[in-house]
Design a protein around this nucleic acid. Structure first.
Length: 601
RNA sequence: GAUUCUGUAGCUCAGCUGGUAGAGCAUAACACUUUUAAUGUUGGGGUCCUGGGUUCGAGUCCCAGCAGGAUCACCA
């Protein structure tokens, strides 16, 4: 679509005050509009006056993308003699009757070249002189038609023959500039703004899109791998009457019709095992988990977990499966199984090192904790300088030693196997070793990435283990697991021997994209709400006699409540209103002095 | 939760022992037909996060709060 042009005969008198009234204030956003925002709203009105719809409804048929042009134009110049592109204007260099601009689409940026007499072949040069040079701004979405060529300085550019506005941008984007060497100036880096306004972040820092593209590939390649093995993707409840399957504090909500509390799931394990009882050979789910705990660079209140359960398998089989799966994922994301993470090169090609939990503690502390009772473990913790609490049982104490002394050393993918039975109520007792369960966790770069068991399917054993958890809960461990009678009933009907696995997708993505905060791999990490500024409604001001069109002006002057206004000097307010009227070029009637004085009575 | 750092123009940041608020980019006006961190000239733009306190005087010092970062603690 091209512009429908009319002679520019409108006056430039624009009443932007109506926009001020509609603006909605919250957070630390400015109370009224900035100068630049007002100018853009004026431009919007002028565009409409020229007969140009700043938000057209019609489809815009795009036939070319920036990345493809920069990659292939040199080899196939004939294929780019007539291209239609769309995107945002990200920079502009105007030189009289010719201009260069950068157009950013979903694939990247490309320079466009506009010449006045090319886009305005007739007498009327409004499209170039007024629309492009004056009324369009950085951030506007435009469509261009033209041909690709090399500029004198050798840059691939699009010579524009038709220009169309597709969507007007009313807020100025941060301008991030880059020079020839790729140095970045005025980068938009404040994490708070980046996370709160991810749309701005990804617009001006498109490099971060790669993280989310990688994230998408991780999930899709795992899903594809599992489906190829014949396993089925399923969905299980997020709202659960009993929060089982993990040790964590839940979020609580309430169902009104049933008048009962419900928990947002902390794990989906017990539901997936019910499906194995039901007769599926392999089920898996990518799902959000919710844990009501602290937030930091590795914890978000909601995060994505993968869980998979396969019947007739054990945890030894699972190790081989995980090796194959993660190598596949790493290859899809990077092309090779080796991933650079910080200063470490991590190789996801199997087989991975295997170390039992007790052996790993012996390896890194020279202490054999395998035969110790609870008291001896407490003494050992004291010797190692590890803080313990009364509520910690034997399993928890071993885990504390492991976390403090072993974890950080496990850089290359390493399976830690055979955990103490006390810390793992859902895993099967070890086939050979007394007091242990058949479990492994996969550690990479010092962090736990995956957790797997030979699943416990002995219903009587399972009931006893959950009862032990209730005892721990009684000792004050508020993360101990709850009893789930329906799950136990399912096991009593019989669950085949099964191996199960859970992977924290966010942390896996962090690893594969070399990010050290979880916020960087989540589009919208949880944040505290933006601060609200207390503002009176327009009606509060109207009630004391302020004309509606002057309320936003008072707000702009810093009076957000009637009380603040009344505390001010009436004469100064009257004078300042005149000043604002002039400054903002407002075409509204100045209230009489007596009227203003009446506001303060 | 603890410690610590940060909060100043649309963005990135200066602002000294307390004395009328600065720069670059963005923005506005003018010039300019192949520029590329375009350039030149001239303007406009601020609740110095909020609230108290000290002071003749606070962006600056003190206290409290809010938001964010980092480290630690908690946490499969």
């Amino acid at each position: 679509m091209t512009f429908f042009l009319i002679k520019q005969t409108i006056s430039l008198r624009i009443s932007h005050i109506s926009y001020l009234k509609k603006s909605y204030f919250c957070g630390n956003m400015s109370i009224a509009l900035s100068e630049q925002e007002i100018l853009r709203r004026e431009s919007l009105q002028q565009l409409r006056a020229l007969g140009i719809n700043p938000y057209p409804a019609e489809e815009y048929k795009v036939t070319a993308w920036a990345q493809d042009i920069t990659d292939n134009f040199e080899r196939f110049p004939d294929s780019y003699k007539n291209v239609t592109m769309a995107g945002r204007i990200m920079s502009r260099r105007i030189m009289g009757s010719a201009s260069f601009a950068e157009l950013q689409d979903s694939t990247g940026r490309i320079q466009i070249y506009l010449k006045r007499d090319d886009i305005c072949p007739g007498e009327d040069k409004t499209l170039y002189n007024t629309v492009f040079k004056k009324l369009m701004d950085l951030g506007d979405y435009v469509g261009v038609k033209g041909f690709v060529f090399f500029t004198q300085t050798g840059e691939i550019s699009v010579h524009v023959q038709e220009l169309a506005l597709l969507s007007k941008s009313l807020k100025p984007l941060p301008v991030v500039r880059r020079d020839d060497e790729g140095n970045i100036y005025d980068a938009f880096t404040d994490p708070e703004l980046r996370y709160r306004q991810r749309y701005v972040d990804l617009t001006v820092n498109p490099g971060y899109k790669q993280i989310f593209i990688a994230r998408s590939k991780v999930i899709s390649s795992m899903r594809e791998y599992f489906i190829k093995q014949g396993w089925m993707e399923v969905e299980t409840p997020i709202l659960q009457p009993v929060h089982g399957g993990a040790a964590a504090r839940p979020f609580v909500t309430h169902h009104n019709a049933l008048d009962m509390p419900l928990f947002l799931r902390i794990a989906n394990e017990l539901y997936l095992k019910r499906l194995i009882v039901a007769g599926f050979d392999g089920v898996f789910e990518f799902g959000k988990m919710f844990r009501n705990e602290g937030m930091d660079r590795t914890h978000n209140p909601e995060f994505t977990g993968l869980e998979i359960y396969v019947a007739y398998k054990d945890y030894i089989w699972m190790m081989a499966m995980v090796e194959e799966c993660l190598e596949t994922v790493a290859r899809v994301v990077h092309g090779i199984p080796v991933v650079q993470v910080g200063g470490n090169e991590i190789n996801f090609a199997g087989p991975y090192e295997k170390l039992s939990m007790y052996d790993s503690i012996r390896k890194y502390t020279d202490i054999d904790v395998s035969g110790m009772d609870e008291d001896a473990l407490r003494l050992t913790c004291g010797y190692l300088g590890i803080e313990v609490t009364e509520s910690m049982g034997k399993g928890k104490l071993v885990d504390e030693i492991f976390s403090a002394k072993v974890e950080a050393n496990l850089i290359q993918p390493t399976y830690i196997t055979d955990y103490p039975i006390e810390m793992t109520p859902l895993a099967k007792k070890h086939r050979a070793k007394e007091g242990l369960v058949e479990r492994f966790e996969l550690f990479v770069n010092g962090k736990e990435i995956a957790n797997a068991y030979s699943e416990l399917n002995d219903p009587i054993d399972q009931r006893e283990r959950l009862e032990e958890q209730l005892i721990l809960a009684g000792r004050g461990d508020d993360e101990a697991m709850a009893m789930d009678d329906d799950f136990l009933r399912a096991l009593e009907y019989g669950m085949p021997p099964t191996s199960g696995l859970g992977i924290g997708i966010d942390r896996l993505v962090m690893l594969l994209t070399n990010q050290h905060t979880i916020q960087e791999v989540l589009f919208f990490p949880q944040m505290r709400p933006e601060k609200k500024v207390k503002t009176a409604t327009t009606d509060d001001f109207i009630n004391i006699g302020v004309p509606a069109e002057w309320v936003p002006v008072l707000n702009k002057m810093g009076f957000n409540t009637v009380e603040e206004l009344k505390a001010a000097n009436p004469n100064k307010v009257f004078n300042d209103l005149g000043g604002m009227r002039k400054k903002l070029k407002l075409e509204i009637v100045m209230p009489a002095k007596e009227v203003v004085m009446a506001w303060f009575e």
